[in-house]
Structure formats: C-alpha cells, structure tokens
Design a protein around this nucleic acid. Structure first.
Lengths: 190, 190
DNA sequence: ATCATTTCTTAACTTTAGTTAACGATTTAT
DNA sequence: ATAAATCGTTAACTAAAGTTAAGAAATGAT
C-alpha cells in the first residue's frame, strides 16, 4: 500500500529513505467505507484526495437533483476547488466503493514542501500533467455528442460501467438517465 | 508590458532584481498579428503561451470542420497538451486578435526553475489554481443546457461575444452556429 | 423473508438541437 | 471597386434529448 504511493512518486522524483520516512510519519493513509461523504456543500476543507484503491465521486445538487461530474479511481487525484479558494465547498465528494485513500492537507503540504523543495517540483509536474489531461477530456466532451461520449467512455474507462450506477454515469455524460437508457438501446440495435 | 508580467508573478512569489533581469534576458515577449497560427496539428512543440493582451483560440478539425474548444484572453495561460506528452499536437492554436504574448519553452523553464526553485513554487500554485478553475468550468458545462451555457458566458465573459465570431462561440458552447442563432432569437422573445 | 427504497427501462409527448439549404450582410482579397 | 469568401440568420425537416409517468428489477434495511 505504501509501495503504491512510492511507485507513483518515483515517476516524478526520487526519494531518500529520510524523505520516505517523513511522508510515512504524516499518517496519510485512510481506509474509507463505501457511501462515506468526504466533503459536503458549505464545508470548508483544505484536504486533497489521492485514490490508491477504490472510487470516489464528485457531485452537485442542481434543483434538488444530484449531478455527478467526476469519478476518481486508482492513482487519480482530486484537490477540491474549495481547498484553494478557501471558500465553502459548492459540491460533495463521496466514496462509491470501499476506498483506500491518501488524504493530505494544504497546510501540511506547504510545510513539507518548504522543507523538501523537491516536492514542489513533483507537485508542479503532476498538476501540469493533470491540467493537460483534463483539458483533453473537456475538449473531447465539447466536440462530442452524448452517444460519442458514451462510446468514448466504453473505450477509455470500461471499468466505470461496472463500478457505478447508471444514473450517475448519465449525469457524468451530461444527460438524463432516461436518455442514457435509450441511447444504449439504440446502440444495441445497430 | 513587463509590468503586466511582474504584477502577475507578484501574486505568487516576490522577485529580486536579479531574478527579474534573468527573466527579461530570456526574450519572452512576442507581438503576434491576428490570424497567425501558433501551433498546427502534427507539430511537435514545447512552447507555452501566456496572453498579456489580445486573444488566442484553440481548435480541432473534426470531419474537416473546425471545432473551437477554448479562448485565452488577458492574463490567461495555455500549455498545449503536446508540450507535456511530447507527441505531435492534435489541435491548432491561432491568434483571434493582434496579441501580445509571453512564449516560454519547457526546456528553458526546466533550466530556470532548477536555478531558481522559487519558480517551481509559483508554477505549482499557478497550475493548481488553473486546474481548479478548469474543473469548475467543466462541471458547469456538464450540468448545463446549451442555453444555460450561453447565459453563463454572457455573465462571465461578456467581452468574448464582441471579440470572436459567432460560429466559433457556438462550437465553444458545444453546439452548431445555427443552434446558437436560434437560441439567441428564442431568448430575445422572452 | 418481507418491505421499502433505489435503480433501470420503456413509453408517450414536448422541446430543442442537428442537418440541409437558401439568402443577405459583412469581410477579405484582388 | 468588384468579386469571392466568410459569416449570421432563417426555415423546413429529422433526430435526439428532456419530461413525466409507470412498472419491473435489484438492492438494502428491518
């Protein structure tokens, strides 16, 4: 489980045993039960999440309706906007499965980064990478129809279709559950 | 013009005169004419762009049709995905107006950052901020109808409607030019 | 095991977006 | 100045998504 973290970090920087131990002393690992709500609308939090195993979901309420906007699975990270803006959260985050997480805090990160500037380098590389990935996802979303987006999801994250309920996938694709159901029926006929 | 850059940087870190001079010696400032294509599909480039004045546009070709995915205006930055992935670009970037740009190169950034670790801190903060902003934009896009997206744009970037042609705005909103035209006519009736 | 809740699907109907085409208006090039 | 290309709008038609409602299936709770 620690190996998962260190293998991940090694993609960006190499750590000394000393640095490794500092990280381990921070109590970053958390095992969280399915259904647990990590962040609620209105809450102020400076926590970031990194999924080692499992799945977390980000969603909003629009006119009393849940709207899912993202799923984060193995080796994916989320820093909720409220952690940077220091304003109350506008969305929710919850666990879609029993999940093994790294939860880190902005204040703690600042401290560690100032002690080990190396971490700044890693964070810069990692955020730049995420930014580009997200940009591509957004562009693909914009330039696709719901049907294309569904087919695209089938290709790129086939696991998600097994892991999360259909109606959450629907709003993740920007459509209603009914439309997704129809769309799938349409595709089966072809 | 240099003031624009240094004022921006001062939001994240404070610079010594020495550091300022290093930055100025790098020849970062470029004045680019409207219509200039900065990046083409198939090209390999490690350049990043920061708009000081003007507007640049990112777009793809889908079945021979241009699809605009983003506009970057004053004080907005773009690192094209190809700069990180080191694969040929899948999209185009061009100037929508006569534009004053900072163009920086990944290799050069690495060099400066290794000399002044302070820049790593700034880049980390800046990318994290952009990531959160983009996340919010994406979430809003997903949870909105075309009409809501248009109204949202009116509120948040009213200048864009004056600055860029309608058909580019349409694909930026994920719809056809005809739909945008209709949608606007519909809204006027109300 | 039963009941309640949630989830998925289907259907009928409404609304909106996509498509194709046509026509001015504007912009650009010569 | 004129011709050509681009751009914005409108219209008629098609296709797909939203809405509302109902019922079956699966899941969870007691």
């Amino acid at each position: 489980m620690q190996k998962l973290l260190f293998d991940f970090i090694s993609k960006y920087i190499s750590l000394t045993d000393d640095e490794r131990n500092v990280l381990l002393s921070l109590n970053l690992f958390h095992s969280v039960k399915k259904g647990t709500v990590l962040l609620k609308e209105g809450q102020k939090s400076k926590d970031s999440y990194f999924v080692l195993k499992g799945c977390i979901r980000s969603y909003y309420f629009v006119d009393g309706e849940e709207r899912t906007t993202a799923f984060y699975t193995e080796m994916e990270a989320l820093t909720p906007p409220c952690a940077l803006s220091k304003t109350p959260s506008e969305h929710y985050i919850s666990c879609s499965e029993d999940t093994l997480l790294i939860i880190s805090n902005a204040d703690m990160e600042e401290e560690v980064n100032s002690k080990f500037p190396k971490f700044d380098v890693m964070c810069r590389m990692f955020s730049a990478e995420l930014l580009a990935k997200q940009r591509i996802d957004f562009d693909e979303f914009k330039t696709s129809s719901p049907e294309q987006r569904y087919l695209n999801l089938l290709q790129k994250r086939p696991d998600l279709l097994q892991r999360v309920p259909q109606h959450q996938l629907a709003s993740y694709l920007g459509i209603t559950p009914q439309s997704l159901s129809r769309l799938r029926a349409r595709l089966l006929k072809k």
